[in-house]
Design a protein around this nucleic acid. Structure first.
Length: 118
DNA sequence: AGCATGACGCCTA
DNA sequence: ATAGGCGCCATGC
């Protein structure tokens, strides 16, 4: 059975971004969340890549703690949105995030799960 | 229209 | 645990 798919809709995309930002804003300091977890919490686990896009398009002056978003292995995203390759790691360490010896976030300790109903 | 790319993730070997 | 392949979906050329 073929899976129903929504048609591309700019308004839906904007709404999607808003929901991503709203969810990321709920991540407490010292905790992290993954792209896949965000997509799942928003009701579509397949949109993990779009979560990344949404964060990529964050406007200036946003109050979204995007540095608390990592991939499912706990890897950081690099310099993309943080102006400096170590910026994201610095922010996370300042919040008490523990890193493994290979440079990944210790997800077992810091992964945050959003409450239901989001 | 086709093809490549990407702040991703799952499956398989 | 690691590496490669593939699916996903929005974007850009």
């Amino acid at each position: 059975m073929k899976r129903p798919r929504q048609p591309p809709d700019p308004q839906a995309w904007t709404a999607f971004q808003a929901r991503v930002y709203a969810l990321v804003r709920q991540v407490p300091p010292g905790r992290v969340i993954t792209y896949g977890a965000i997509a799942t919490a928003l009701g579509d686990p397949r949109k993990a890549r779009e979560v990344g896009w949404a964060l990529y398009e964050l406007p200036d002056g946003h109050n979204v703690p995007a540095h608390r978003v990592v991939n499912r292995e706990g890897c950081l995203t690099g310099a993309w949105a943080f102006n400096h390759p170590d910026r994201q790691r610095t922010l996370l360490e300042a919040e008490g995030i523990a890193f493994l010896s290979d440079g990944r976030v210790d997800l077992a300790r810091h992964l945050w799960t959003p409450p239901d109903g989001q």
